[in-house]
Design a protein around this nucleic acid. Structure first.
Lengths: 206, 206
DNA sequence: GCATGCAATGACCAGCCAGTCAGTCTACCA
DNA sequence: TGGTAGACTGACTGGCTGGTCATTGCATGC
């Protein structure tokens, strides 16, 4: 019985945490870390400030949790889709597609991520996030290396740097879409980027 | 005589402004906009806080001025070097080279720029900076269009989106260098990026 | 050496907000 | 119905910091 009760408590607790994080995501996306107040987050979650502090120790902890939540979601989805793709080209395309779609579906997270997750932000956020960032670039790197071995990607390219550059290219496109600068559909953007990239990296020039 | 005196005053005023902006750049680069205090900036400039407010109306104004200073410097240098380059390929290379070198020489500015000049930052900073950002991408766009007309760049690429993507690619490399993740020299990075890009965009595949 | 004005100062103020905690409410059980 | 646990509340506080302004001190001209 106490076990069952504890489980129920845990469920409620998890629910509250998710509620708070979703509210926080919205608020942080609009106002940034410093601009957002815990009162606003609490209100957006339909709770009092004190309640928020029952589930998180500090504003910073909320922020990091919200960021991590969106980030691991993105990473998991990207990995899944890349693994399911059969060829190097398809994996590369899966990487781009997944990221563009995820950005479309999680605008608040992407806004936070792009706003603060840059060089200074990285240093500020600590090693855990650097690790998450590099994890994605390395997944790409592995795929590109594999392509080299199979002979479909030219060997002269440094796979490590390439992984990061491809990563940043998608970042650039995502940012444009977020700002409403891109008039193309998500699919058109994906096609364009993949085409450009594949011509650049493939051994036979396209 | 009053004219001469005014000129002298203006010189002092300009000198102070520059002093403050240089100090501000250092502080903002380390702490971000919200983390930095005006007292810190004043101290870094060897002045009292009140003095800073003789030259700038607010913290925000200091920030924007520091950002604008670095930004227009970068834009001017990039344009100069691109104009001096004879061919489309050389112009593209000049764009990459200039940006990587400028980033190397103005680390504080680049840190601020990358930390805050992203989507939320853009909205926050206002139209003027959006204009400056787009100005650079458009300069690239023009060069790429010219390349299309001359037949050295394939026509199927949307020059607008391409300009922004190239812009973001250099951004990615700069960020890596800033974080110390790139073990390559600046020249090697330039070469790599140009090679990749040129293969991707050129009409004859390299 | 005196008068003038202007750059510079830094103590001060007012508002904001993260984080606290004494008290309330509610669900549940005996 | 009365009692308890613990979830929830929101008024409050302490510290911080952007911005002000009365005062100081210095350079310049007479």
């Amino acid at each position: 019985m106490p076990v069952l009760k504890k489980t129920k408590q845990e469920l409620v607790s998890e629910f509250r945490c998710r509620e708070i994080l979703e509210a926080a995501c919205k608020v942080f996306a609009r106002k940034g870390f410093s601009g957002a107040t815990v009162d606003e987050i609490a209100e957006a979650a339909g709770l009092a400030k004190g309640t928020v502090y029952l589930y998180f120790r500090s504003k910073r902890e909320i922020y990091l949790a919200a960021l991590k939540r969106g980030f691991t979601g993105l990473i998991d989805e990207t990995r899944r889709n890349m693994e399911a793709a059969p060829t190097t080209a398809a994996k590369l395309k899966a990487f781009i597609t997944t990221r563009l779609r995820y950005a479309e579906e999680n605008r608040d997270f992407v806004a936070i991520y792009h706003a603060e997750f840059s060089n200074v932000g990285m240093a500020y956020l600590g090693k855990e996030f650097r690790h998450l960032y590099l994890q994605q670039a390395r997944a790409l790197e592995a795929v590109l290396r594999e392509g080299c071995e199979q002979g479909c990607i030219r060997r002269s390219l440094p796979a490590g740097a390439l992984g990061l550059v491809v990563y940043e290219m998608t970042r650039g496109l995502i940012m444009q879409r977020l700002l409403g600068w891109s008039r193309a559909t998500s699919d058109e953007d994906t096609e364009f980027l993949f085409d450009l990239l594949w011509k650049g990296v493939s051994a036979d020039g396209g």
